[in-house]
Amino acid sequence: MAKKKILFINQEISPYVPDNAMSVMGRELPRTMQDRNHEIRTFMPKWGNINERRGQLHEVIRLSGINLIIDDTDHPLVIKVASIPSCRVQVYFIDNDDYFSNRQMTVDENGLDYPDNGERAIFFARGVLETVKKQCWVPDIIHCQGWMSGVVPFYIKTAYKDEPSFANTKVVTSLFNKEFQGDFGTNFKQCVDFRDAKSELLAPYNDEFTFQDLGKLAIDYSDGVILADKDVSKTLQKYAKDKNIPTLGFQGEEFGDAYEAFYDQISPEL
Rank of each mutant, 00 (worst) to 15 (best):
R41W: 00
L248G: 14
P153G: 11
I266Y: 09
M148Q: 15
I50F: 01
N168Q: 12
L77W: 00
S165Q: 10
L112R: 05
A261F: 07
E163F: 08
G252T: 13
T73R: 15
T247N: 08
D223Q: 03
I141V: 13
A228M: 01
Q135K: 10
D162E: 13
V192N: 06
L7K: 04
Q34F: 07
S174F: 04
I9E: 08
I226V: 15
R36E: 10
Y155A: 08
N67D: 11
E130C: 03
F188N: 00
D231I: 04
L29R: 15
G118K: 06
I141R: 04
I9P: 02
K80T: 05
Q237T: 09
G65E: 12
E52F: 00
E28W: 06
V128I: 09
D220G: 03
Y263L: 13
N244L: 05
M33N: 10
D116T: 04
E130I: 06
W47M: 03
D72A: 10
S222C: 06
K46T: 01
H143Q: 15
L227Y: 09
P204D: 12
V24Y: 10
F100T: 05
Q237P: 00
D257L: 09
I50K: 00
F250W: 15
P30R: 06
D242W: 04
P268L: 06
N168P: 01
K198V: 02
A218K: 01
F194S: 01
A82S: 15
D220M: 02
N168S: 11
S23N: 09
R88S: 14
I226S: 05
D257F: 02
F194D: 07
R62K: 14
I61W: 07
H38E: 12
N110Q: 07
I13A: 01
R36D: 12
V128T: 11
N168L: 13
F180C: 02
N102H: 13
I79W: 00
W137G: 05
L202P: 07
V132R: 04
D140Q: 07
D257S: 09
D108I: 05
F123W: 00
D183Y: 08
F123T: 03
L63N: 05
F154Y: 14
V172A: 07
D72R: 12
H58S: 15
R103A: 04
V192P: 02
I70H: 08
D97K: 15
K161G: 01
V171P: 00
F8D: 03
V171F: 01
V107E: 00
M148D: 00
G146L: 01
T42Q: 12
E12F: 15
L217Q: 06
R195V: 12
N49K: 11
R120D: 03
Q265S: 13
H75I: 02
E130A: 10
D162V: 06
Y160C: 03
Y92A: 00
G127Q: 04
G118P: 11
S64T: 13
D220Y: 04
R41S: 14
G146K: 01
P15Y: 13
P18K: 06
C136R: 05
G146M: 05
I40K: 06
C144I: 14
F188A: 04
C87Y: 04
D207C: 08
